[in-house]
Amino acid sequence: MSVEIATAPVTAKESSPGFGLKKRIAGLIAGGIMTVLVSALVWVLAAVLPSKTDGPFTFLENICNWLYTTPVSVGIRESTLLFPAIEGVHLLGIALSVGMLCWFDLRLLGLVMKDEPVSKVWTRVMPTAITGFVLMFLTGALLFWAEAATAYHSVHFWIKMGLIVLAGVNAGYFESTTHAHVAEWDSAAVLPMRARIAGLFSLLLWTAVIITGRTMAYSF
């Protein structure tokens, strides 16, 4: 008989208009904590790690060195406008991709748009996020092309690539397993742990990618 109490229905959450002082203060505290964590990670990366590496793959090194000498590479690197423009678009790509994907991840964590089914948030967010990812990868490839030889010797560059692969693996695993059965938990009050973990990993990994992107630029 006590089972009834244990599985009491989730009390309808007071859906306040969403601009309450409490929410803002909570947001600011979360922002403050994020700020400290992100800065701390930059410090650790910069202070603990040597920023240069010889790299074990002479084959890759040769390719990078060759890329570095191609006209396109020299052209981008030495242009006053092209390099900043490409970096600007790269930044826009980050804002669009991570900025949109984060709403889906936060939905998985149950922190935003709780009254909407997961699949609906997905269809709203993904077209823009994918556009952002395309922009980001294309401009990222160009930036790498321009600085291939320097990037090869940068530890931060390799960490960044590793993190991108991990983010991809996380997304791929989520897509092929948990998300494939989204219909079963689309509107659940509490999402499956696997979905929440995938969301959290996605947020953390992409934040870390942005961090290493910056530390890379500063230790070139």
Binding site: G31, M34, T35, V38, S39, V42, W43, A46, A47, L91, I94, A95, L96, V98, G99, M100, C102, W103, R124, V125, T128, T207, I210, I211, R214, T215, Y218
Partner: peptide
């Protein structure tokens, strides 16, 4: 050496969230 890059990184992460929120609503 590293306060500036650290602050800039936070600046960019927050920028992604802000821009994402604004573009989402605008779209």
């Amino acid at each position: 050496t590293w306060i500036f890059p650290a602050a800039e990184t936070v600046h960019i992460v927050a920028l992604a969230v802000l821009f994402g929120a604004i573009v989402f609503v605008d779209l």
